[in-house]
């Protein structure tokens, strides 16, 4: 397995305010990482540090040369004033491989069409992104993320605004993408069951108690420790 990202003794936070420090993490290809933590625990800040969108306050973030990210942000972050079609949205995913002021080639457009088809949203191709349901938006964002043929897929609460059926469909699609393309996935979710079902590695993070733990699922998902972490009596069967 190829090492994609290594965080060495990293502190994460904003404006010199440390959320969590002493983070050590190594992400390799074909791994599925789930990130768990309460609201405001620093999950998204961790993702943004991994994505190099914000620099670590301390330590080193080593990223493999020319690593291509696929990113599925929370869908409500997009301003609905933009009449962007699903096709135009998915095209943007391909920009990771197209330089500024350059045009997309015929091959790029073929990859985009295939990504739309793969995500099962061909019927939504010409609809505006803003007019879609929560589940349709997530599928479109997944199509966008795979259009860039990424090495690492980063998902920020991809099932937050969908119902149970939609959640299942989206997670199956994510798992299919990961296993077929052998790429690494990091996914933030509030749903412990979702994380425990689909991921093989887990990160627990909590800003308030400066807590960070990462490792293989079986080692992390100790019911007692996890219960203490969330302050709940958990049943993860």
């Amino acid at each position: 397995m190829t090492k994609l990202i290594k965080l060495e003794n990293v502190a994460i936070g904003y404006d010199n305010q440390t959320f969590v420090d002493s983070i050590n993490l190594s992400i390799e290809s074909n791994q599925f990482w789930g990130v768990l933590g309460p609201n405001g625990s620093g999950k998204t800040t961790l993702l943004k540090t991994v994505l190099s969108l914000i620099p670590p306050l301390k330590g080193q973030a080593l990223i493999q040369n020319e690593l291509v990210f696929g990113y599925v942000p929370q869908n409500e972050k997009f301003d609905p004033i933009f009449p962007i079609s699903v096709y135009e949205l998915v095209l943007m995913g391909r920009y990771s491989r197209v330089k500024p002021a350059s045009r997309l080639s015929r091959v790029d457009k073929e990859v985009v069409e295939k990504s739309i088809e793969y995500a099962g949203i061909s019927h939504l191709r010409d609809r505006t992104f803003r007019s879609l349901s929560g589940g349709e938006k997530q599928r479109s964002l997944l199509a966008r993320s795979i259009a860039g043929e990424p090495d690492l897929l980063v998902l920020d609460e991809p099932t937050a605004s969908v119902d149970m059926k939609g959640e299942l469909e989206i997670m199956q699609l994510v798992k299919e993408i990961q296993s077929q393309r052998k790429l690494a996935v990091i996914m933030v979710s509030h749903f412990i069951n979702t994380i425990s079902e689909y991921s093989d590695h887990i990160i627990l993070i909590d800003k308030d108690s400066n807590f960070f733990e990462a490792g293989e699922k079986n080692k992390i998902l100790d019911k007692e420790d996890l219960g203490k972490f969330f302050g709940l009596n958990l049943n993860l069967n």
């Binding site: 190099s52 969108l53 990210f69 942000p73 997009f78 301003d79 135009e88 943007m92 920009y95 002021a101």
Partner: peptide, 16 residues
């Protein structure tokens, strides 16, 4: 394409 991209999704534009 670049002006639309940075206007619509600044974060992904930075990422790329």
């Amino acid at each position: 394409k670049d002006f639309i991209f940075v206007s619509f999704d600044t974060e992904s534009a930075r990422l790329f």
